[in-house]
Amino acid sequence: MAAAAALLVLAGCGGDDGEQRLVVSAASSMTQALTDCGPDFDGATVRYSFAGSDELAAQVRQGVKPDVYAAANTAIPEELHADGLLSAPVEFATNELVIAVADLSSISGLADLTRPGTKVAIGSESVPIGSYTRELLARLPGDAGESILANVRSNEPDVRGIVGKLVQGAADAGFVYATDVEAAAGRLRAVGLPPALEPDVTYAAGVVEGAKQPEPAREFLDGLREGGCADALAAAGFGTP
């Protein structure tokens, strides 16, 4: 038994060796930016868990306790806060919803996505990218939104799934964040949306109630707005709220 426990600790890379470890659950769309700035964080060694904001929130609800939770919207952190699971959320970045297509694609706007036979990949309804996309489609005049939804071939659990389907040529177009296209530069191209239709994409984060490292967690949160990670987010194309 003791041996089994010891093995688990070993698998977790060390345990109590005096080093503070900060666990950050963050939306997939921040994978690149946060991975870049993680090593520069002074307060602790940062360990990330990247997935769809909704999946990460569901983990928190099931009792998984990261120290920081950072989502690609404000709604999910607000809900967690209302349920006493997260500190008051802090808005720290903005993003832009765009159409992503293969670099050489002829698709140049929303109208092309309504054509029957165009294969579209979007986020599933529960993940922020999916709800932003549906918000946008609902604003389109006439039955354009309906026609695009009819062309949807996959509801992916996070943005990485959408980008993967596009890069692999399985889908012709997808709705992702501008930063995702930037990260896949050379393979994907962004097609902008009419500004009036664009949903407001704001990222928010908080310290998880019962966090093992509340102090470094707060420092990390501050760093998202000002400091190493804020710079990394800006470099990746994120805006400031």
Binding site: A121, S124, V152, R153, S154, N155, G161, G164, A171
Partner: peptide, 9 residues
């Protein structure tokens, strides 16, 4: 399945 075929009801 998710990577190759995607996810659609």
């Amino acid at each position: 399945t998710l990577m190759f075929a995607g996810s659609f009801q």
